[in-house]
C-alpha cells in the first residue's frame, strides 16, 4: 500500500462489521490508486442497498463512484471498456439473483479477453456480489451462484467470511490483474470482528485453518463459515474436536490445507448453501478422494442447500445448512 497516512480511525486492530470493513477496504483502495472506480445501481448517494459504498461518492466524486443506469450487462460490459482504457472498475451487483443479465459479459467477455489476446490484455475488474440467504428476502435475493463462475476458466472467485478478510481481500482483489468475482456473505454483513489494518494480509488465494481439531475436518466458505465454527464449538460437548477450514478462494481452490487436515482426521464434511449437484463440494470431494484416498475413514459428505430453486423465506430455515445438519453429517461420518 502506498504512502497514505493511516488515520486514527484506522489504527491497527479496530472492531468493525464485515460491511464496514468492506467499506474501509474500498476507501483505502481508492485512495491508493486513482484508477479505481466503483460502479453499480444505487452505489452513489444511497451508498448501495447494503451501504457498502456509503460515503464514497461524497468523498471521491461522481466520476469515481458511478450510479449506473439499471442494466447489469451494461455495468459489466462498460467496465470492460474502462479496464481496456486503464481503469480498475469495481462493479457492484445489487443482489446475487440479478447478476444473470451480466452473465454473458462475465463468462464470454471478462473471462476470455486475456486468453483471446494471447496474454496481451488484462482486465483488472472486480465484480462484487452479495450472496446467500438467511435474510428473509423475496425471490432472487438469496441465491448462491458461485459455482457458475468457479466453473469458468479465466475468472477467479473468492469469498470473505470475517471483517479482517473483508477489509484485506477486497483490496487484494482490486490490486490483482485477474478478473475476480467477489462473493460477499450478505447475511453476515453486520457481524463484527477485529480488523488489523496494519498487519500483513494473508494471501488472497489461500485456504485457512480457523480452528484446529483432530477428529474430523469441516470445510466451508462465506456465510457457512460461522455455521461450521458454531458446529465445532458444539461438537466439543460430544467429545469431538473438529478442524474448521475457510476456503476463502473458490477458484482456484487451495486444497493443500484440506489434504493435510484430512490426512490427520480421516473425515471430511463440506458445507455450502448452494445446491450439492455440481457445486464446490463436489470438486472438493473428488480432489480429496484422489489425494487422500488411503487416509479417509468415510466418504466425503456434503451439507448443502437442496437441489431446488431457493425457496420462499418461511422455508429457508429448512433449506439452509445449520449447526444440526453439520453435526448430523459428522455423526454419519463417524458411523460409517
Amino acid at each position: 500500500m502506498t504512502g497514505q497516512a493511516v488515520t486514527s480511525a484506522e489504527k491497527a486492530a479496530t472492531t468493525l462489521s464485515i460491511g464496514k470493513a468492506l467499506n474501509n477496504g474500498l476507501r483505502r483502495a481508492m485512495e491508493d490508486d486513482p484508477k479505481v472506480l466503483i460502479m453499480g445501481e444505487d452505489v452513489g448517494k444511497l451508498g448501495g442497498v447494503f451501504r457498502i459504498t456509503d460515503g464514497l461518492q461524497k468523498d471521491f466524486g461522481e466520476d469515481r463512484v458511478i450510479d449506473t443506469p439499471l442494466a447489469e450487462s451494461g455495468i459489466v460490459g462498460t467496465a470492460i471498456g474502462l479496464a481496456l482504457r486503464g481503469y480498475r472498475p469495481v462493479c457492484e451487483i445489487q443482489f446475487d439473483g440479478f447478476v444473470y443479465p451480466a452473465y454473458d459479459q462475465i463468462v464470454s467477455q471478462v473471462a476470455k479477453f486475456h486468453y483471446r489476446s494471447r496474454g496481451q490484455v488484462r482486465l483488472p475488474i472486480v465484480i462484487r456480489i452479495p450472496f446467500g440467504g438467511g435474510i428473509g428476502a423475496v425471490e432472487h435475493h438469496s441465491e448462491s451462484p458461485e459455482a457458475y463462475f468457479s466453473h469458468t476458466a479465466g475468472l477467479k472467485v473468492v469469498s470473505c467470511a470475517n471483517p479482517n478478510d473483508a477489509y484485506w481481500m477486497i483490496q487484494q482483489a482490486i490490486a490483482s490483474d485477474d478478473p475476480i468475482i467477489f462473493m460477499e456473505p450478505k447475511r453476515r454483513y453486520w457481524e463484527k470482528g477485529q480488523v488489523d489494518t496494519d498487519g500483513e494480509p494473508y494471501p488472497l488465494h489461500s485456504a485457512r485453518v480457523l480452528r484446529p481439531g483432530t477428529d474430523a475436518t469441516v470445510v466451508a466458505y462465506g456465510p457457512m463459515v460461522r455455521v461450521a465454527l458454531d458446529a465445532a464449538a458444539a461438537a466439543v460437548e460430544d467429545g469431538r474436536e473438529l478442524e474448521v477450514i475457510d476456503l476463502r478462494s473458490l477458484s482456484p481452490l487451495d486444497l493443500g490445507p484440506v489434504y493435510d487436515s484430512v490426512r490427520r482426521t480421516g473425515r471430511l464434511v463440506v458445507v455450502h448453501e448452494a445446491p450439492s449437484n455440481l457445486g464446490l463440494g463436489s470438486e472438493v470431494a473428488a480432489r480429496v478422494t484422489e489425494k487422500c484416498f488411503y487416509s479417509l475413514e468415510a466418504p466425503v459428505l456434503r451439507v448443502t442447500g437442496f437441489n431446488v430453486p431457493y425457496p420462499a423465506a418461511r422455508l429457508e430455515e429448512e433449506y439452509l445448512p445449520d449447526l444440526d445438519r453439520v453435526l448430523d453429517a459428522v455423526d454419519r461420518s463417524f458411523g460409517w
Binding site: 437442496f306 437441489n307 431446488v308 418461511r314
Partner: peptide, 29 residues
C-alpha cells in the same frame, strides 16, 4: 405456514430422482 416438505415440490413437472432422494433423506433426518 408452508409445509416444510413443500420445499421439494414443483421443481420439475416430471419430478427428479435427485430431489426424491433428498426428500427421503430429509424425512429421515
Amino acid at each position: 405456514e408452508p409445509d416444510p416438505m413443500s420445499v421439494f415440490d414443483n421443481a420439475y413437472p416430471n419430478g427428479s430422482p435427485l430431489i426424491d432422494e433428498e426428500r427421503e433423506r430429509f424425512v429421515a433426518y
